[in-house]
Every structure is written in structure tokens, then in C-alpha cells.
């Protein structure tokens, strides 16, 4: 082994003391006869020891407590005001509903977009109204169990996405194109004559629309 070959190998060697390392015999033989490479080996050993020391010194290093407090406050806000997250849900719906078929996904995205649009265009006081019946939102473990006259949205019905906290469910009033209601399989949507139909969306945790019902 020559010096160049040794330099290529030196970063891979574990210890400055080659006798204790699983080093190739040719490297051991070379470093014994070459002071420059022995010095280089020692430098690498010292560097690694210093990096180890630095790692140990900062092992306890973590973000200050105020970050945790700020995040907890945000989490509480999210739980309290699920509709605030709806624009985000609309923006990256593909991430949240990745495995779903594209057609269903686009219907879901449309629902989220519609709801978001209306939420932002209405004054805060009219954004949410109380859930219509306790039965509609209580005991909701998955989409298939959404009760009353609400129709579970296709992506929600088929995805198995668990419903959010029941107490946080919200209902928002929206205007939905008739064709969208038909695509969602809402009973009676085919009979509607208007292009846009008044409906209510049931929003789960984080403001994700779960079900829809047509208003008479």
C-alpha cells in the first residue's frame, strides 16, 4: 500500500491504533513505516474523538420550552376551531387522501374548496351553526355510521378515515353545483332543477367535510 491508497482508506479506519482496528494488514504495515500517514491517522482519530465529544455535549440540547407551549396552544386552537384549517386541507388534499381514486379525490377536493370559499366569504358569525341533531354527530366512529339525513361524502365513506372528535363537528351552509351532488350520490339530487343547490356540509376534526345534506 502506498500513501495515496492509505489516504483514501484513512477515513474508514476506526481507531488511531491500527493494532486494535479491523484494518487491512497492508495499511498497518504502511503506517508503521510512514510517519506522514501515521500523523494523518492520528489527526483523523483526534477529529473523530472531538466530534464524539461535541455530540455528547449537545446530546441534551433541545428546543426551548416556549416552542412546546406555542405548539400546544396551536393544537388547542385547532381542536376548538376546526374550520380554520380548511383552506390548508383544500390546498393539499392529495396528501391527506393519497390512496383514493382520482375522481373521488377531485370530488372531495371540490367539496373542501367550496366549503373553504364560503367560509371565507361569510362573516365570522355565520360561519358555523350548531349541529342539527345530536344523533348526527354523536357516536361517529367511521364514515359509514354518519346518521340522520346527511349523506357521507364518497371519499370519506370509502376511505375508512376515522371521524374527528364528535363534539367538534360543525355544520356549514354551502351552495353546491347540482352535478357535484349527483356525483356524490346524494339522494334526490337528480330531481333538482337549479344549477346550484343549498346544502349543509358536516365538518369533522380539522374541518374536513364528512357528509352533506340538501336543504329543502
Amino acid at each position: 500500500m502506498n500513501c495515496r491508497q492509505f489516504r483514501n482508506l484513512v477515513a474508514e479506519l476506526e481507531l488511531p491504533d491500527l493494532e486494535q482496528a479491523a484494518a487491512p494488514p497492508s495499511a498497518v504495515a504502511h503506517v508503521r513505516g510512514c510517519a506522514a500517514c501515521a500523523g494523518l491517522l492520528k489527526q483523523h482519530g483526534d477529529l473523530r474523538a472531538s466530534l464524539c465529544r461535541m455530540a455528547v455535549l449537545q446530546a441534551e440540547c433541545a428546543a426551548p420550552d416556549r416552542v412546546e407551549q406555542a405548539l400546544l396552544a396551536e393544537l388547542r386552537d385547532q381542536a376548538r376551531l376546526p374550520q380554520r384549517t380548511l383552506p390548508n386541507a383544500r390546498r393539499s388534499g392529495a396528501g391527506a387522501f393519497g390512496p383514493l381514486p382520482a375522481g373521488i379525490l377531485s370530488a372531495g377536493a371540490l367539496a373542501a374548496a367550496l366549503a373553504a370559499l364560503l367560509l371565507w366569504s361569510h362573516p365570522p358569525g355565520s360561519r358555523t351553526i350548531p349541529a342539527p341533531t345530536a344523533a348526527a354527530v354523536s357516536g361517529v366512529d367511521d364514515a359509514a355510521t354518519v346518521e340522520s339525513d346527511f349523506t357521507p361524502l364518497p371519499y370519506f365513506r370509502n376511505s375508512g378515515i376515522p371521524a374527528g372528535p364528535d363534539a367538534d363537528a360543525d355544520v356549514v351552509r354551502v351552495e353546491v353545483p347540482r352535478s357535484t351532488l349527483v356525483a356524490w350520490g346524494v339522494p334526490g339530487a337528480e330531481d333538482e332543477t337549479a344549477d346550484a343547490v343549498q346544502a349543509e356540509l358536516l365538518l369533522g376534526a380539522g374541518g374536513v367535510p364528512q357528509a352533506v345534506r340538501v336543504l329543502e
Binding site: L71, L75, T85, L86, A89, R91, G95, A96
Partner: peptide, 11 residues
């Protein structure tokens, strides 16, 4: 990073 985790669009 953790705000992203909290938010609904966490992918």
C-alpha cells in the same frame, strides 16, 4: 415542523 404535523394537510 411540528405545526405541519398538527395541521390537517400533513402529508
Amino acid at each position: 415542523v411540528f405545526l405541519a404535523l398538527i395541521r390537517e394537510d400533513f402529508g
